[in-house]
């Protein structure tokens, strides 16, 4: 069997399949681990309701723990509290930036049912550092990202949305 500490360490090596520069632990997807003599229970929370990576993540967690001799791996999904990008720590945010994805700017929005329209965040290009950037779309290659473009170095980049 594994200790909880060993299990956390192992899972911190499991990359997110769509943003492989950060681990599933760094993203805050793993909520709790409970070790038993014959196995382990992993409590996970999905990022977005329809995130297609969820099933691959579950499989990677299971394979990693079983390969390390954890025994029976039970997965439990927990929706409450809902996942928020606020759980991504500072170290992981810097890894995202170095990878070319601007990390969430500020905290996730709460409140107002009124739509927030035509408000644009000024983001700093993760490649050249210019603030002369523009948003191309609120959505991107995955549910969690928006698409931007740098008007100085002319490169596109992605923004991990606060949610």
């Amino acid at each position: 069997m594994l200790t909880e500490e060993q299990a956390w360490k192992l899972l911190d090596e499991v990359p997110d399949p769509e943003v492989p520069v950060v681990s599933v632990v760094e993203l805050g997807i793993i909520r709790e681990l409970h070790c038993r003599p014959d196995g382990i229970t992993v409590v996970v929370t999905p990022t977005y309701s329809g995130c297609p990576a969820t099933e691959v993540i579950g499989l990677s967690i299971r394979e990693t723990l079983q390969a390390a001799g954890a025994g029976k791996v039970d997965m439990e999904t927990r929706l409450d509290p809902a996942w928020t990008s606020d759980w991504i720590g500072d170290a992981a945010r810097e890894k995202l930036r170095a990878y070319g994805i601007v990390p969430p700017d500020g905290r996730a929005a709460v409140g107002a049912a009124q739509p927030i329209r035509f408000v644009r965040k000024t983001l700093t290009c993760p490649r050249c550092g210019s603030t002369n950037t523009e948003r191309l779309s609120e959505f991107g290659s995955t549910a969690c990202k928006a698409t931007y473009r740098c008007k100085s170095c002319l490169e596109p980049f992605e923004y991990f949305k606060p949610i």
Binding site: L79, A82, A109
Partner: peptide, 27 residues
Amino acid sequence: DSELAAIAAKSLKEARYHLNHSSEWVI
């Protein structure tokens, strides 16, 4: 219904993005 409340908290975050997106396009 606690399960429905949990689904609501999650869906609300997503719906806010959908509302921002569609209202900008309607205008």
